[in-house]
Design a protein around this nucleic acid. Sequence first.
DNA 1: TTTTGAGTTGTTCGA
DNA 2: GTCGAACAACTCAAA
Length: 455
Amino acid sequence: MSRSILWFRRDLRLDDHPALIAAAASGDVVPLFVVDPAFADAGPARLAFLAGCLRELHRATRNALVIRAGDPSAVVPALAAEIGVDTVFATEDFGPYGRRRDAAVSEALAAAHRRLELVGSPYAVTPGTVTRDNGQPYAVFTPFSRAWRAIGWDEPADGPRLRWAHGVDSDPLPEAPGVDAELPPGGERAAQDRLHAFLDTDLATYDVGRDRPDLDETSHLSPYLRWGCLHPRQILTHLGRSRAHDRFRAELAWREFYADVLFRQPRSAWWNLDDRMDAMEVDTGAPAKDRMASWSAGQTGFPIVDAGMRQLHATGWMHNRVRMVTASFLVKDLHLPWQWGARHFLAHLVDGDLASNNHGWQWVAGTGTDAAPYFRIFNPLTQSQRFDPEGDYIRRWVPELTGVGDDIHAPSAGKGPPLGYPAPMVEHATEREEALRRYARVTGRTTTPGTASSR
DNA sequence: TTTTGAGTTGTTCGA
DNA sequence: GTCGAACAACTCAAA
């Protein structure tokens, strides 16, 4: 009886798993997860969530999961040789690191006449396949999403009948690093539970509810998508034609769009997609580092910003609307490089994904695909009043402000800040003007919007 | 080939 | 308080 290895990476589930189906078709399956030293970049919250996912996967494979720690290009061929397996199946990875890693593993396996077989992808539509009529990639979201929907996707497939191979030596399951953050439960079963809870409740009003951090009606599926505990096909199959469903489908399309952009332009992970923006002045000296510290600690004196940063540290997650507000504040009010914010988010987010995170930051900074117009600068006060009208979100995460009433959105206005809460670290109107001046210098424009004197 | 309309998430000003 | 206009310039994609 022949056997093969199924190397799990960002596909930590057994249902709707094309690579697993392919592996099962060729005999017994050795389920493998490699604890790659490169994971050190992931940050403790994401690693703790991963550890939970692996415990669940171990259980789901009837304790057959093999853990090996080390560089995959050494570890995977070594295991294949050790147990006499010719083919290693895996889901294709489209990120810059994953592609390099898989090329190295493939080469090392080939040297011993073995092979890495890549089947399926973490996306409904494989990155690189949505193209314009002339074969070029789309550079703006809306036409991409139309073409993406037109291509379509398969229905989810059931998990295969298979026999797990037991008795292979394994390193211990990785320990979850100690984190203060309260994290969601990992694994495929938790992902399905969350999906069905969302489908039964908040999805119906997603188009309006999604913007309200106080109501918290987003899906919370991002960590599960990040590790493939859930495939987007498994969500899309439940979506119909309503406004709310369309809206949620569009959010999944954004994830696929950014994966496509990163696949085609791997450099855009950390470099401006629009290199004309390289001329943009950003602050990087010692005072900038102090401003960065206040931002990341949730001590800016802007309640909605501080609430978001503290939610991030307390839970490894931040509401999407607040991600935009905090990101805009870092870029437009503090004039720091978007890369600093992106790095911080990746270090703390349980759902941190290079493509979605960094291109989202580029969108805010106006350096990316589909960039926000230069004049779209979030006003932290307006955003707070509009999307957290009663201040409930702020009170939940900024305990110093629990007793503050109607002026919770700007508690220092007209008087001193409440005990233990800092005064605003900058004046928004001033920094908005400064941001507009810097953009004008790059683009050669002479006027700025929104001021009477400039008309 | 040329033209035309549109483009995630906003803010401010002035009527 | 509400509402429309203005805030650039460019790319993309369909007509």
